[in-house]
Design a protein around this nucleic acid. Sequence first.
DNA 1: GTATGTGCAAATCATTTGCATTCTC
DNA 2: GAGAATGCAAATGATTTGCACATAC
Lengths: 159, 159
Amino acid sequence: MKSEIEVFREFTRKKGLRNTPERETIIKEIFATHDHFDVDELYLRLKNKKKKISKPSIYRLIPHLLESGLIQEAYFEDGHFHYEHIYGHEHHCHLRCLRCGKTIEFQEKPLEKLEGKLAEEYDFSVTGHKLEVFGFCPQCKVDPHVAKVEDAGDPRRQR
Amino acid sequence: MKSEIEVFREFTRKKGLRNTPERETIIKEIFATHDHFDVDELYLRLKNKKKKISKPSIYRLIPHLLESGLIQEAYFEDGHFHYEHIYGHEHHCHLRCLRCGKTIEFQEKPLEKLEGKLAEEYDFSVTGHKLEVFGFCPQCKVDPHVAKVEDAGDPRRQR
DNA sequence: GTATGTGCAAATCATTTGCATTCTC
DNA sequence: GAGAATGCAAATGATTTGCACATAC
């Protein structure tokens, strides 16, 4: 199986883009953990490792990583997107509490049948999907009608 | 079936929130069309109708509408969320082009089995879901490797 | 050699917040 | 009458952009 770096090199070659050491450093860092990441956190991780990468370089790379299929948006929280790398890894979906914002990951059977149907019907080349299921977590559903809980914060706070 | 206004009144009563004419005006406007909406567009629609509603009032209402199940995030594009009202309407999912951002709505069979399983497994009270399928549209997949198309813009531009 | 990428600083712009006032319950 | 909600103006903070320089192809 090709490494993520190789996949990206191929992608840039095909698209007439350029690969750079900065980009490879960012990609390696993204794939260095199994966790989600967001731009700021990724920037800090790189900074801690004494890599001199600017935030704009990260922001400018993300659309390419999305398009190349290496990463995917996972969810939007705390005012910004969180991403997950999907190349070579099981992709997971998210169960989120509408009240406190708590997020749980779960695996679900691939929606391959649906993807195939959509590909045919709309003539799309389908590459993946994102599924979020909403509801109320055990704590928040207990008494969903109390005016004030020790608010864990709005699911959509900040920015 | 209760009207959306009634649903919201009940919600505020149960939660110890307050209902106001401004909020009812906003809710009515949201349900006045079948389309998606975003905050700015909604604000302008109200403005055109000579309703004096401020943007912060809309922003402050949205978390309540999400929690009450009247609306749901549809997708994030052009730097902000787009919402859809789901109360009393068929909810639809989205098929999006990773290249040009084109978005197509489609109906899918309810993922009820999955929702039930998640509810049980995680003790959640599940209220809905959001499914986005990604890929490349007929135009963009034709020659996905050309460096430049008459860019319809980045899917994730602006902010 | 040319066009693309980088870092920096400044600009954007959606969203949030402080505050004085108004209004629901 | 107390606590919420409103509008306004100002603040916040993620993302984008202009620019001069560096560098991949």
